[in-house]
């Protein structure tokens, strides 16, 4: 790599790092409004969202329904807090909406729904829906000869659902090279660690065996994420792609990283300011 390219890559990573910081900050501020929420997941997946929204996706923040956009489907509706943070950072949603997060008549309900929020493509939350909807949309885009792509963010817990695997098989059958699945593997679901509830490892081998082009990376390593997303998007293969991202819940806030992992992390009232302060420290913000 030339010196210029190296420098450019470094500045790209730094820009993404700043985006990931802001996404985490927005998520914590929303969590504080309700006093609770899926902030552990949001902090964990922030880097993945930063790379998705600020490197991979084609979108027009002022026109979330732009026909030529890439479609980002959030099937894990409870991760809405994370996606709202990314959409705020991308300029799709106004930052002031944070104050009403999860409140009556807010456009930011606690579980993501298409009718409420600009940029929220589908109603998620009943797990195992997103990838199948993505298959239909990818088929539809092919019918229209559109160059747009479908991204679907799902979780390791969502791999428990049989409907997800119906979609995995179908996407390979239809050669949906315009479909990119992103799996957030934080090894945590409602009752326990995912590996304890219903172990899905070896996850990568399974997707590969189903006929997908498979990538597995540290989902909190921006350089690794950029490389995986760039490779997945540059590929000319007609196989659907999956980027499996191992993430750490609570990433960026030391006491949440260390707290016993829980699907629904509780944060005491006085801890939100500590969380925001620790996040600043992690990013070297004074």
């Amino acid at each position: 790599m030339s010196q210029t390219a190296t420098a450019s890559k470094a500045s790209d990573i730094e820009a993404l790092r700043q985006r990931a910081y802001k996404i985490r900050q927005h998520a914590l501020r929303m969590g504080e409004v309700q006093g609770q929420g899926y902030v552990g997941q949001a902090l964990g997946v922030a880097d993945v969202l930063a790379v998705s929204y600020f490197r991979a996706l084609k979108l027009d923040p002022k026109n979330p329904e732009w026909e030529e956009r890439d479609r980002f489907l959030l099937s894990i509706g409870h991760y809405a807090i994370a996606l709202y943070a990314a959409l705020i950072e991308a300029g799709v949603i106004a930052e002031e909406e944070i104050e009403d997060y999860g409140s009556d008549d807010s456009i930011l309900p606690m579980s993501g729904m298409a009718d409420y929020t600009p940029g929220m493509e589908i109603t998620g939350g009943s797990l195992g829906h997103g990838l199948g909807i993505g298959v239909g949309m990818a088929l539809g885009l092919k019918r229209k000869e559109s160059a747009s792509r479908i991204f679907n963010l799902l979780s390791d817990g969502e791999l428990n659902e049989g409907s997800t695997w119906e979609a995995v098989a179908s996407a390979a059958h239809w050669k949906l090279g315009n479909l990119i699945a992103i799996v957030d593997v934080n090894d945590q679901q409602a009752d326990d660690k995912s590996s304890t509830v219903l172990n899905y490892e070896p996850i990568a081998d399974k997707w590969t065996a189903f006929g997908w082009e498979t990538y597995r990376v540290d989902g909190n390593d921006l350089e690794a994420l950029v490389e995986a997303f760039d490779s997945a998007l540059a590929s000319n293969s007609d196989k659907p792609r999956v980027i499996i991202c191992d993430t750490l819940m609570g990433r960026g806030v030391t006491f949440l990283e260390e707290r016993d992992k829980n699907h629904f992390i509780r944060v005491d009232e006085n801890e939100w300011s500590v969380a925001l302060k620790q996040l600043d420290e992690a990013y070297g913000v004074q």
């Binding site: 195992g128 088929l139 049989g162």
Partner: peptide, 13 residues
């Protein structure tokens, strides 16, 4: 299940 999801996706497009 896939049939209904994919139908939804087609309708979205």
């Amino acid at each position: 299940q896939l049939l209904m999801m994919a139908g939804a996706g087609m309708a979205r497009e």
